[in-house]
Design a protein around this nucleic acid. Structure first.
Lengths: 191, 191
DNA sequence: TCAAAAGTGTTAGGCATACACCCATGT
DNA sequence: ACATGGGTGTATGCCTAACACTTTTGA
């Protein structure tokens, strides 16, 4: 979330958004990319459209507004957004906290609810966003990642069998050593 | 599909669509309803948003166009659309024929492909649109309906067990008599 | 009486969970 | 040696597909 420096909803925390520039953007996804660059100073990965919302009341700047909602996913470690246009600060929130926060700008809390639901459905089906969760990784790391998104524990054996059935990842040949037994490293299948 | 009477794509067959009127419509779905009324002279049932498409090239009337796509479902028997604004004729096409038709206006064939896929996924999960397929009906009629949408045969016994597990329909108490053994009539569960 | 459709039962397999168990390593 | 995380095997249950079967009716 970014803290808004300007009217409307000044001082409130909201999702980054912006206005389509027909002179700059060739399509909607390009708009999303440009706006993210302007407001977060970074490009987006793993972008997916979630739908459109439009009505008279959702933004006091206009009598009518349409937003086309895009979600993106990031490897948190190598992703350092900075406040750009009309934000003076950024912060990360756990998605369920943000969804429950009544002070969030506009109807952005509803949008967050929808996005979290959508992503969890994907993870349930083991559609792993590898643009986000890059290899090499151990199976336990991947499982921990999925558990963090879903918000509940998974069974190790079942998780691995389901992954194996799908052929979405393959061993990289290397291992990760740590305090205990080394773990096989995996990567997304190239096939 | 309707045959377009005006530029652009005059004479081509396309989906009904139109422009949001911020003075008339309170939200996107209301727009969809108003536009259907204008172009098909009937209201819509079972409306669902499928997403938004926007880019520079999809409509030659403007340098940039966004369409928010809505699908609706109808009981064909009691639904009689008539050509309204900018259509001189309407025709029904089997959805896979329309999807494969290269002569369809704009990018509407792509939209049809997406809509068919989405609906089939719903029917696969036995999410029956009862606003479309009203009771009372026999189980065989419901199965035939699903088979028509999916484009393949279903197993009678499995289909019935899956329905029973879900508790989405209940016997109405009446039967339908015909040339052969009478069939129990069902309706959507009210619970 | 018999063709056609209504309706039921039975088996086998895919896929998931739950849980118990063994393995390898750095401290 | 042992605690800890890596890794595997087995029992069980749910859901579904496939298919055989019985029942009922009007012509």
């Amino acid at each position: 979330l970014g803290r808004r420096t300007e009217w409307p909803q000044q001082g409130k925390w909201g999702l980054p958004g912006g206005v389509i520039r027909i002179d700059l953007d060739k399509d909607l996804e390009t708009s999303a990319q440009r706006i993210a660059q302007e407001r977060l100073l970074v490009p987006l990965l793993n972008v997916k459209q979630l739908g459109a919302i439009g009505n008279k009341t959702r933004d006091e700047r206009a009598g009518w507004t349409i937003s086309v909602i895009y979600r993106a996913l990031f490897p948190r470690k190598h992703f350092e957004p900075h406040p750009g246009k009309r934000f003076d600060e950024l912060k990360w929130l756990a998605v369920d906290d943000a969804a429950a926060d009544a002070t969030i700008a506009f109807d952005h809390a509803d949008i967050i609810v929808g996005a979290a639901k959508q992503l969890r459905a994907e993870i349930d089906k083991l559609e792993i966003p590898f643009e986000f969760f890059r290899g090499p990784f151990t199976l336990t790391e991947l499982q921990t990642f999925c558990e963090a998104i879903l918000g509940n524990k998974l069974d190790k054996s079942s998780f691995r069998r389901r992954l194996a059935d799908r052929n979405t990842i393959e061993p990289s040949g290397n291992v990760r050593t740590g305090a205990f037994r080394p773990a096989q490293l995996y990567q997304p299948s190239k096939i």
